[in-house]
């Protein structure tokens, strides 16, 4: 998960940049210095590329080329002649026909709609939960904050697949003690039904990522200058007042970015649905957009339509996070 970087970007970049401006070793500078020239200047101008080379080579191989391949093959149609394609394979430019085919597939479109519904409910809930937890842990009233922080963060170290296996055992009647507990209060839950399984997945995602997002917010809370708290205390502000007027506004960047990364993560949902599929018949092979693309590629062997789907998912994630950023920016100004 790249979800990490967010806050850093908003918060600290400016100061770093300004120090960079002053602190740069420009090759122009070093060449202006008297002394043994030639190879030295050459070395200084080669050095950054030498240092960048391994990263750039791998970046091109695993980011740039695949994106290029995806876009290219999403506009390509492969036709096989002969009964088993033995008479040759022909690729030709297909325009938007793969996209049209992807969007005409009701299940694929429905899966995007399902993720939107999921995101509208789960993301605000999780962000609210981790904000409240962060504020409580950082408040004066919390006991053993170190223990709780570790306990909440622990699920982040459990891979999504393992977390899903774990919860799937708790969702299955007969195996799960949750049903015994529910029976005590007269409930007969069905965690894997057609209407409930989406929220069972939401529970797994919340379980996995709340602690992680909480740590990001805690980090930003810790960066709030102490004078602000002092001033609030002098003014006699209550804990609520401090949280609402000082802490919440100042952790906004962290909230915005954890939200954006949660939106992107929601559209990428895969492992949870795919693993839960084995115990929940309500989950079909096109339950999430990514599962849909995976099925198209590996069950139907239609890589071109799968590429179109992958591009559509990435674009949707980009548009949504961009829209959210725009929305929050407008609200703040």
């Amino acid at each position: 998960m790249t979800a990490t970087s967010p806050t850093a970007r908003t918060g600290q970049v400016s100061s770093a940049q300004s120090s960079a401006r002053t602190g740069q070793v420009s090759s122009a500078q070093s060449s202006a210095r008297p002394g043994k020239r030639g190879d030295r200047t050459g070395a200084a101008s080669r050095a950054p590329w030498l240092l960048l080379a391994p990263f750039l080579a791998l970046f091109i191989l695993t980011f740039v080329l695949p994106i290029f391949v995806a876009v290219l093959s999403s506009f390509t149609k492969v036709t096989r002649s002969g009964l088993f394609g033995e008479a040759g394979v022909k690729s030709e430019f297909a325009g938007f026909s793969n996209y049209a085919q992807a969007l005409a597939d009701g299940s694929f479109v429905a899966s995007i709609g399902r993720m939107l519904l999921f995101g509208v409910v789960q993301v605000p809930l999780m962000i609210a939960l981790c904000t409240v937890l962060a504020l409580m842990l950082e408040s004066a009233s919390a006991k053993w904050p170190g223990f709780f922080r570790a306990a909440y963060f622990l699920p982040y170290g459990v891979p999504g697949v393992i977390a899903t296996i774990l919860w799937s055992f708790l969702y299955v009647p007969g195996l799960s003690p949750l049903f015994d507990v529910a029976a005590l209060v007269g409930l007969t839950p069905d965690f894997l039904g057609a209407n409930t399984v989406l929220w069972s997945i939401a529970n797994i995602v919340t379980w996995s990522y709340t602690g992680y997002n909480m740590l990001i917010i805690v980090a930003q809370l810790k960066a709030i200058p102490g004078e602000l708290y002092e001033a609030a205390k002098v003014d006699g502000a209550s804990t609520w007042r401090v949280a609402l007027s000082i802490q919440l506004p100042l952790i906004r960047p962290a909230l915005v970015l954890t939200t954006v990364f949660s939106i992107i993560g929601t559209l990428q949902l895969f492992a949870e649905a795919q693993v839960l599929k084995t115990v929940a018949p309500a989950i079909d092979s096109q339950y999430t957009p990514n599962l849909s693309a995976y099925t198209t590629a590996f069950a139907y062997n239609d890589y071109n339509v799968a590429a179109a789907q992958a591009v559509l998912i990435a674009v949707a994630a980009f548009v949504l996070s961009f829209a959210f950023l725009k929305f929050t920016n407008r609200k703040s100004s």
Partner: peptide, 22 residues
Amino acid sequence: MTATVTPPSTSASPARTSTAGT
């Protein structure tokens, strides 16, 4: 994770003492 990247800045050290204070 914000502060991970927080370069050593002057404003940060009072922040720490004050959290302890509150």
